[in-house]
């Protein structure tokens, strides 16, 4: 428990004392939001995810490759 607290405090103090780091974390946050909540949700739905089983996915790909 003592060890966990020390690790927590290490990161907590580190983040709190950042200067440039704060700006960078804001940029990282905005970037990840655009990537996962806009791009991933609205534009990047895996094509084969609509098929439930591995067999169905194989069948579709084999059809695509042999048509």
């Amino acid at each position: 428990m003592h060890m966990l607290k020390r690790v927590w405090m290490f990161y907590y103090d580190g983040f709190r004392s950042m200067t440039v780091g704060k700006t960078l974390w804001i940029i990282i946050g905005i970037k990840l939001f655009i990537m996962f909540f806009i791009l991933k949700l609205f534009f990047f739905r895996p094509e084969l995810a609509k098929y439930k089983t591995e067999e169905e996915k194989s069948k579709v790909v084999i059809e695509n490759l042999t048509k």
Binding site: G21, I28, M35, F44, P46, E47, A49, V61
Partner: peptide
Amino acid sequence: AIGVATGIILEFEFGTNWSN
């Protein structure tokens, strides 16, 4: 920090645009 995770988009593209 600016570059981190930009490569993940390539993995999105594999699944969506390059599924075969």
